[in-house]
Write a protein that binds this DNA or RNA. Structure first.
Lengths: 267, 267
DNA sequence: GTTGACACGGTGGCTTAGCCACCGTACATT
DNA sequence: AATGTACGGTGGCTAAGCCACCGTGTCAAC
């Protein structure tokens, strides 16, 4: 690992280790030692330690003095894949994801709300993909999403791809590296149109998530406003700095028991 | 900073730097250089770098090669204080926080739902504080919370303290170090009783947050089920690993404009 | 046979010394 | 005035080495 690259070695190493972690290890396993990493990747021990320390503060692994470093959680549980991709989230919950494409087209940045084009940091003449989709888990509609995607970053996006996992289209076909997303979560009532799409009664509770997704740490790739069925979806998050800093995870609720209904009906 | 202490030096240094960061620096400032820290705290440069790298992966500061390290955000914006404490959140939003204590008492762990006592990892004979509170920002009710607190960790808690900031009572009076909390966020409809407490129409949308708070990284301190008024509160979060790993932040909405109402009414 | 003291090897924690690529700036050159 | 260049400071990284800690296995004592 010569340091000719543009990015610092410890960042590259970081990604390598995170991949290796996701593929070859699972919760509770003993990870590679600093000295092993140092030798395997031809890096100094200090650099190996720095990369490991980074994974520690992300909550992926933990140090145990005098013993080694150990995997703290199922990494797929944490990976951006499962944070951003509905397809992966559904699979992780043991459900079959499908997509119903409502609309799909092209639009100029000058035509969208200024809030959107500002968040995407685009000039007025930029082009966007616009789409509305309904995501279903085991045939049950869970998400109704309205999304704008910067066309210049994935010009070859097709209608067919929009019917499946955008995450895969971005990563596999366009070679994009999804870094993460900024989300704002609010509680809303679904209006009749939205409720119909999600096959629930009008004025049902839902989560509205407004998000901007980023490529390579800073470059905005998409903007979305997404409605989640309140009885099917919940967000998990961990507050606080050390040892954790685990981002919020949206998860499909495994149980279909209507405890929320029970609560609401208990009035 | 001799290494006689029980905890690793870089962790102590980490806390020192985080404190210094919160007190003496603000967004955009240039932070201390590795060499300055190395000299000031009598630590090797490698250790200084490791501590800084930890702050970087928490999203507090960022490295700029050849220039220095810079503060990325208003630290209070990130600190556990403002993540966990409603009082601090309200102040940060420029609003005056007040509390209405509905109930306050003592209860045995054997009497509460098993879900609660399990999450708090308590034996059956342990004692808990139980309380219901309504939190207001500028006299507007925002939160209705039901909370259980492990009594052994804060035996001197009083009714008067429960009328104010529990966070302050814990940290200042009992010397506890709040490490963070695990939260689950869901969308619900408020039933009549809940809606009355929050002074909104029945069947208004709300966020239900079930959380377990921790002391010193692992020891559970409280369990809570909290209802947030949908029109007054939203959660911000950042997904993905590097450069960020910023936990979810619940924030009071500054604008009272009813854009959610507008959405829901547009059906 | 069981127990316990102790040495050994491996791990992360930490230091020291030093070189490199990068950045801004101040100064000299054109 | 515009351009180029040298310099000092910064984070990135390597190298070699010592320490405290941990588990384990050996071996002596009981």
């Amino acid at each position: 690992m010569a340091h000719i690259e543009r990015n610092p070695v410890y960042q590259q190493l970081n990604n390598l280790l995170r991949s290796s972690l996701a593929e070859d290890y699972s919760r509770g396993d003993r990870f590679m030692t600093e000295r092993e990493i140092s030798e395997k990747y031809r890096v100094s021990r200090a650099t190996a330690n720095k990369a490991l320390a980074s994974l520690v503060s992300e909550g992926l692994i933990e140090f145990r003095r005098g013993i080694g470093t150990f995997v703290r959680r199922d990494v797929i549980d944490y990976d951006v894949r499962s944070l951003v991709s509905f397809t992966e989230k559904a699979k992780a919950a043991g459900k079959k994801p499908t997509t119903e494409l409502v609309t799909f087209g092209e639009i100029s940045a000058s035509e969208v709300e200024s809030a959107v084009s500002e968040k995407l940091q685009l000039p007025d003449d930029a082009l966007l993909w616009e789409m509305e989709r309904i995501r279903l888990a085991d045939r049950v509609p869970v998400i109704y999403e309205h999304r704008y995607v910067v066309k210049s970053l994935c010009p070859r996006l097709t209608r067919a791809q929009a019917c499946g996992s955008l995450y895969r289209a971005w990563t596999d076909l366009h070679g994009l590296h999804i870094a993460g997303a900024d989300e704002v979560i609010r509680a809303v009532l679904l209006n009749t149109a939205e409720a119909r799409h999600l096959q629930v009664p009008a004025r049902s509770p839902g989560l509205e998530v407004t998000a901007v997704g980023n490529v390579d740490e800073q470059q905005p790739l998409w903007w979305e406003r997404t409605l989640y069925r309140g009885d099917q979806y919940e967000f998990h998050t961990r507050l606080g700095p050390i040892q954790s800093a685990t981002p919020a995870r949206g998860v499909l609720r495994l149980s279909n028991e209507a405890d929320i209904q029970a609560r609401s009906a208990s009035e």
